[in-house]
Design a binder for these strands. Structure first.
Lengths: 156, 156
DNA sequence: TCATTGTTTTAGAATTAGTCTAAATCTACT
DNA sequence: AGTAGATTTAGACTAATTCTAAAACAATGA
């Protein structure tokens, strides 16, 4: 009868930086390895987005990219984010209907969302879902599990 | 270290209809019991929405209400859905950024979403989340857990 | 190098879900 | 009935996102 079970395992740290490539070289090879053609705009967008683990809206990313002096249009930010999502480099998070968040950490993890403050933060420990496929809707395969734990401030 | 655990239990069936009230009386007392003043519009909206377990957009509900002959504005549908959400009678489901679904079944349950077809269906078995509160972000309390299992068609 | 071709970017228009507004209508209460 | 507060309404408005069609760019091959 059980259709889902979750097991807990800890988040392995990203221990990169032990090879001598520059950030730009790493970004370039990341994009290339996904079959993404390199352009000035995609590089600066990726550079900004992947600078750290973050949850950003298209607009926030657009501002950040502009802030770094690059000339990139908003349409390109949307196009590029869409491309990155398609290639699995970033994840979309749907928290409310008014805006989409893009998570620069595409690896499997979940989120706390504070409905009072709007804070969106990672759940540090991972839940690994193991699905018994015949319990999924007929003719379908698992894509991804989105788990959002909505929290409120205790004393608002 | 474990911050979440899920236990499985089966969905108890709604065994209503063993008292002699009409659907309209039940709707009225449901709304009243939540402190919602009765109006013609709220009654017909609730009637349409709670006729069955369903996931609808505001627009779909607006069309359904209009289809039943009632004269209700779209703003009222939005206002009323917002009110019902605030009162805990319906749940919002955020599947993508382009539209909000309203779930006429507000009890705790989760969803399969087929990204190919757009089908949104209930997970039949429930996952009861037990959170250790000190693992939540400081100063926050659990509100609600949203779990969406995204699936794809096997042979598209 | 130049021409050709396909890809990408761009500004701005278009779309669309949802919210806001201010007036009209209702409802409840005296 | 009269008043006050709540609710509804049509349509204007907003904001995120998509679309469009032209311009810029990149890659390829003669």
């Amino acid at each position: 009868m059980e259709i889902l079970s979750f097991s807990i395992y800890t988040l392995q740290m990203d221990s990169k930086n032990d090879n001598p490539t520059t950030q730009q070289e790493r970004i370039d090879s990341l994009l290339s390895s996904c079959g993404i053609n390199l352009t000035k705009q995609r590089r600066v967008i990726a550079d900004t987005l992947f600078a750290k683990n973050q949850h950003v809206t298209a607009d926030q990313l657009f501002d950040a990219v502009k802030g770094s002096g690059a000339r990139v249009s908003k349409a390109t930010v949307y196009n590029t984010l869409g491309l990155f999502v398609k290639k699995g480099l970033v994840r979309e998070i749907f928290i409310d209907a008014s805006r989409t968040f893009y998570d620069s950490n595409a690896s499997h993890h979940h989120h706390f969302y504070n409905v009072d403050t709007g804070d969106l933060i990672d759940v540090k420990d991972r839940l690994a879902p193991h699905f018994v496929s015949h319990e999924l809707p007929a003719g379908t395969a698992m894509d991804v599990v989105d788990l959002v734990i909505r929290v409120r401030n205790c004393n608002p």
